[in-house]
């Protein structure tokens, strides 16, 4: 059990939580507004790639961050347009975004930077140590703290602001929201695009938060673990964060226990098993927003 008291385990748990919690909260925004979003993986890749690219081109990792997030928002906006305006199947669209983003980032990586990978002199975001908090908060990416702030702000936004109330209303019953005088489409755009920007931020963390390079498919399925975290967290920011923490812990534990007879692969299954159980109502029932995934077409 000495593993559990090792601060390194908890530090890496936090580090692994960031790229799960951000897209999970991003997905929460989208689905709370009523648009099913399985495109987090692809949007993260876009964020990761353009984070590195703009960081290298501008020399500023902060500009890289902002532009990477904006590119993620742009892709999310296109997704949103097709999902909302064209009432296209949101799951199929999400797949399209994932395949497209995976291909596009690999393609641009090779055409813009050649086959040798991104330049090693790309600047990355700073690491921060919080004094007095011990080794767990030593040398963590600045985005860890940003993520913690986002958890709090997102919770406040969704549950304590007027806009948040409206977004939730649109995801539960768009017809009721429409008759109450809300603009259903605009609110859904906001949810999907804000969600996309958060997912992209998760990608930025992977590329210039803890590294300073981009690699093909470097998200490695995190967008889908985030999807699981969002469901297991019952479509709330705090729940998504806690689920991401649990899943991050499972991963970190797997790494820590490597070579000690416990299979990291079996530990990696935990998020997915828990999600199925939660959906089937065996571990605290997770119920999606009532109008999640159903396009709304006003009849006039």
């Amino acid at each position: 059990m000495s593993v559990l008291t090792n601060p390194q385990l908890w530090a890496s748990t936090l580090a692994m939580t960031v790229p799960l919690a951000l897209p999970a909260i991003g997905g929460t925004f989208s689905e709370r507004a009523g648009v099913v979003n399985i495109a987090m993986e692809g949007i993260m890749l876009i964020g990761a790639f353009f984070g590195v690219a703009f960081s290298y081109w501008t020399g500023s990792p902060w500009l890289g961050l902002v532009l990477g997030v904006l590119m993620g928002g742009l892709l999310a906006a296109i997704f949103a347009w097709a999902a909302i305006r064209l009432a296209a199947d949101q799951v199929v669209l999400g797949m399209a975004v994932n395949i497209f983003a995976s291909g596009l980032t690999a393609f641009l990586l090779n055409t813009l930077f050649g086959y040798g990978g991104t330049p090693p002199e790309t600047p990355s975001l700073p690491f921060v140590s919080l004094p007095g908090l011990g080794p767990v908060f030593a040398h963590q990416s600045v985005l860890l703290y940003v993520m913690l702030a986002i958890v709090v702000i997102s919770h406040w936004f969704l549950f304590h602001t007027r806009l948040g109330l409206r977004i939730r209303a649109v995801g539960e019953n768009p017809l009721a929201a429409d008759t109450a005088g809300l603009n259903v489409w605009r609110l859904r755009y906001i949810g999907v695009i804000v969600g996309g920007m958060l997912s992209a931020l998760g990608g930025v963390y992977l590329s210039i938060g803890i590294l300073n390079s981009f690699d093909v498919d470097m998200t490695n399925g995190r967008g889908f673990i985030a999807l699981a975290a969002m469901i297991f967290g019952k479509w709330t920011p705090v729940g998504s964060f806690l689920a991401s923490l649990l899943f991050g812990f499972a991963t970190a534990l797997g790494v820590a226990l490597q070579g000690q007879g416990v299979s990291p692969d079996l530990l990696s299954m935990i998020p997915y098993v828990l999600t199925i159980l939660a959906l089937a109502g065996l571990v605290g029932r997770s119920t999606p927003p009532a109008a999640d995934g159903i396009p709304y077409t006003p009849i006039r």
Binding site: L165, E172, A176, A177, A180
Partner: peptide
């Protein structure tokens, strides 16, 4: 009814003019 079951009575009533 054009109500949102997941929200509170007050939320439902003020929605759109909170």
């Amino acid at each position: 009814f054009m109500l949102i079951p997941a929200l509170s009575v007050a939320d439902n009533i003020v929605l759109g003019d909170e």
